[in-house]
Simulated assay, not measured.
Amino acid sequence: MRREPVAGKAAAVGPDTTLPVALGAFFLFGLPDGLLGVAWPSMRGEFQVGLAALGVPLLVLNGCYVLTAPLSGILTNRLGAGRALSGALSLYLLGLTAVALAPTWLVLVMAMGLLGLSLGILDAGLNAYAALRHGSGVMSLLHGLYGVGTFVGPLAGTAILVAGRGWRPTYLAVAVVAVVALIGIIATRRSWSERPAAARRASRPKESLWNSALLLSLVSFVCVVGLEASVGKWAFSVLIGSRHFSASTAGILVSLYWGGFTAGRLVAAATARFGTPGRLLTGSLATSLLGILLFWWNPAPELGAAALPLIGFGFAALFPLLVALTPQRMASARHAVGFQIAAGGLGAGAIPALLGVLLAEAGLETLGPALLLVALALVGCQFLAARAPQAAASR
């Protein structure tokens, strides 16, 4: 039986002033994610590190992210959602500033750790908020704003790099956006803590949290976020290093990947009421596989490049859809979402890092088949999850 958010409870406390702030926060989180892939060649040149060294800050960032994401539910229960989110966003602002001003490679890596610690709490907390207060349509809209950020990030970074200003000013600009988001969360902090009764029940840990449905879900999140991050981080390097695109053209193509990603989430938000989650999931997986195969095949430069927005469009609905389904499929949804977000963080760090080693050893063009293997693992998990007794019993 589907458990809907208790809209009447939420409405009783007045207009939901938190939703616009949540939308802005998701846009903010997308900016540095989309930027890093474009900034990396300049970063590694400045700090004189190898191609695969990108795995070091990614592993540190996502390792810290994995540590704090499962704690989001506990912190929210003890401090209140408003205080937990504002404290984590303050730490995020500090991390962004430290990245922008990092004088050495070691400081940069440590700053990425600060970002990871804050993002684990922020991402899990905001995703749980959306899953418990809103449906899959709002969830897709929130993640669509994340996609807007990942689209704007590479464009801004490319423009600054082409202007000869380096990668640092863009990170300072993101820090300014973080200040605005922090003010918004502080101003609405009481509204974040006024949760519906269903959300309060879902925040309690239960003995039935760990089951095959959750385990399959965690592997799926590793694959989904790992795929998203791998294309975003390595497509630029493949385009300029193997397929001989100019830096400006490659930057635009990576932005188009995130543009397809954003468009897919906005389309999912607009059409959520007209289709079933199962059909949307199947269509998204099929589109992703088609795009990856086309990118790997690369029969002509234009077709290989066109695969990037197709891949982004296919990936778009996967993450928000799986999060939105959590209150329906699992007990203790707030805590389950925390573990899912942590699994996604693990995928975002480990999979691009492992691919970096593979690309350095076997060549940049091995990105295509490697992406296909991860995508097939995701398809297998979803095939099993659809037939898991726990999932069937909760419908």
Rank of each mutant, 00 (worst) to 15 (best):
E4T: 10
G8T: 11
A12F: 01
G30H: 02
W40S: 10
E46A: 13
V49C: 05
G50A: 15
A52P: 06
L58F: 12
L61E: 10
V66P: 05
P70L: 11
L79Q: 02
L96W: 02
A100N: 01
A111W: 05
G113E: 05
L114A: 11
G125Y: 00
L132D: 05
H134N: 09
S140V: 01
S140C: 12
G144M: 05
G144E: 03
A163H: 09
I183A: 15
R190E: 13
E194K: 12
S212A: 13
L215R: 04
S220C: 12
E228R: 04
F236Y: 15
F236V: 13
L239K: 03
H244K: 14
T249S: 13
L253N: 04
R265C: 07
P277V: 10
L280A: 14
L280F: 07
S288P: 01
L290I: 15
L290F: 15
I292N: 07
L293N: 07
W297N: 06
P299G: 10
P299N: 12
L303V: 14
L303F: 08
G304L: 12
G304Q: 06
A305L: 12
I311K: 08
G314M: 12
F319Y: 12
V323F: 13
L325S: 11
P327F: 04
A336E: 03
A336H: 00
Q340E: 12
A342N: 07
A348Q: 07
G349D: 09
A353Y: 07
L354A: 15
L359C: 09
A370M: 14
L371Y: 06
V374F: 08
A375I: 12
F383H: 12
L384D: 03
